[in-house]
Amino acid sequence: MGDIVGAFICSISDRDWETTLTKGIYGNRTGNIRGGFYKDFDPKTKYSIIRDLVGMKVEDVVFFHILGRDKPSSVHGIYSIRGDPFYDESRIWGDDFEVFPYRFLFSPHPKYRYLCDYDANIEVTDFYELIENRRIWSLATLENEVNMEARSVRRIGEDEANEIIRLLHRDYRQRRRQERVRFDLVQLPIDVIPLYNAIGDIGRYENSIKAFLMYKLAQGDPYLLNVFGGVTDFMNEVFIAQTTRKTIDILCINRVEGMSTYVICEVKTGKCDTKGLSQVLYYMDLFKQKDLVDINSDIIAGCLIGRAFDEHVIEYSRERNRQGVNGSLILLKYQPSVNGRKATFSQVAS
Rank of each mutant, 00 (worst) to 15 (best):
M148L: 14
V153Y: 14
K275P: 06
R134K: 13
H65G: 14
V238H: 02
I253P: 06
Y79Q: 02
V5C: 03
Y215I: 02
F212I: 01
L224P: 02
I295E: 12
V231G: 09
Y262L: 10
N162P: 01
L251E: 13
K216R: 14
V263K: 09
E145F: 05
K39P: 04
D42H: 05
D233C: 03
D60L: 02
Y196P: 00
L213N: 11
L168M: 04
A211G: 06
K275W: 05
D310P: 04
K342P: 00
D88K: 00
F228C: 07
F106R: 01
F97D: 12
N254D: 15
I300Q: 06
K39N: 08
T45R: 15
R103Q: 13
V325W: 13
K46G: 07
E160L: 02
H312D: 15
Y282I: 01
E129R: 06
Y215A: 02
G276L: 06
S346T: 05
A349F: 01
M1P: 11
D42C: 03
F106Y: 10
D96H: 08
I264E: 14
G2F: 09
C10I: 11
R134Q: 10
S350K: 00
E18C: 00
K342C: 05
C272K: 07
I25W: 03
D40H: 12
P72A: 07
R180D: 05
D298G: 09
Y128L: 00
Y26H: 06
T141G: 10
V181A: 04
T19H: 03
L188I: 04
E206Q: 12
N339I: 01
K216Q: 12
M56I: 01
K216W: 00
L251D: 10
L130Q: 03
L286V: 01
I264A: 13
L286K: 04
H76R: 13
R51A: 11
T232K: 09
D249C: 08
K39W: 02
D285T: 09
E59L: 00
S13I: 11
K246E: 15
V146L: 14
K210G: 11
E145V: 12
G229V: 11
A150H: 14
K44S: 15
Y38H: 12
G270F: 09
R176Q: 11
G36Y: 07
V99S: 13
K23W: 03
I199C: 07
C303Q: 08
I209R: 06
N32G: 12
G276Q: 13
Y79W: 05
D233Y: 08
H65S: 15
G36A: 12
Y334M: 05
H169W: 02
M56V: 00
D119I: 03
H312Q: 12
G6F: 00
G94P: 10
K216S: 12
E257W: 12
G200R: 05
Y112V: 06
D60F: 01
S73W: 09
I330S: 11
I202P: 09
L139P: 00
N296M: 08
S346Q: 07
G77T: 14
E143R: 13
I190N: 09
E59I: 00
L277P: 11
I25A: 01
V186Y: 10
K210F: 01
E311M: 06
Y316E: 14
A241H: 13
Y79P: 07
D191W: 00
D233G: 12
F63N: 12
F183N: 11
E98G: 06
S11T: 15
D3I: 08
D40Y: 12
E160F: 03
I156K: 08
R170Q: 07
I49C: 05
K342I: 00
